[in-house]
């Protein structure tokens, strides 16, 4: 067996499939119903979807583009989703669907700019140790594999809990827990490594 064949699961965990969402947990909003309402022109329902998924979308973008651009791109993603909403076959799968739109949008952005800030400039204008630390932490998270990167952005930047991430991404709680745990371990190593250099 080749080196790579053994490493596949370790390095690029799949995050982009659109699985059938789990049955609604108690207290979870009915996303499919909200999508149906938006399709009939309900603005409040659009606000509900935005409230539920905007931080997830922002985290996915932040994992790939500078923070100063992630806010605007988040809104772009929702407008794109709105335009394409009638193409969404499984309305309950809005979360993974809009997540993929966000990834594609980040790619478009990246392709146009043709470069990716290794050290994000978003906080460059701000002084202080915290700003520097934030830059380093964002850069370290961005260097992680995609599944860890997105999950940690949602948890550490957007303040989402593990169960919330699982619900929005239509992932199993176990997968999210593993991503958080392993991602955090890698992040600690990376940040510790920086300090000792």
């Amino acid at each position: 067996m080749s080196v790579d064949a053994r490493s596949t699961a370790r390095h690029c965990p799949r995050v982009t499939t659109v699985p059938d969402p789990a049955p609604l947990a108690r207290g979870e909003p009915d996303v499919a119903a909200a999508v149906a309402a938006v399709l009939s022109g309900d603005r409040e329902a659009f606000g509900l979807l935005h409230g539920l998924f905007a931080r997830m979308v922002h985290a996915i973008l932040l994992a790939r583009v500078p923070a100063r651009e992630a806010d605007d791109l988040t809104q772009d993603v929702f407008l794109t989703a709105l335009r394409k909403l009638d193409q969404l076959k499984n309305r309950a799968a809005f979360g993974p669907w809009v997540a993929q739109i966000a990834r594609n949008r980040a790619y478009d952005h990246h392709r146009r700019s043709r470069r990716f800030d290794t050290l994000p400039a978003e906080l460059a204008g701000r002084g202080g140790a915290d700003a520097l630390e934030a830059r380093e932490a964002l850069a370290a998270i961005r260097a992680l594999p995609a599944a860890y990167r997105e999950t940690l952005m949602m948890r550490l930047v957007e303040g989402m809990t593990g169960p919330e991430i699982a619900a929005r991404m239509s992932m199993t709680p176990g997968s999210v827990r593993v991503n958080l745990h392993r991602g955090m371990r890698l992040l600690r190593d990376a940040l510790g490594q920086k300090e000792t250099r």
Binding site: L156, V157, L187
Partner: peptide, 18 residues
């Protein structure tokens, strides 16, 4: 990390629905 990175958290309103 939550405190330091929380500065970048998204809190924008939904865009105008056409």
């Amino acid at each position: 990390l939550e405190r330091v990175l929380g500065e970048a958290r998204f809190d924008g309103p939904p865009p105008e629905m056409p």
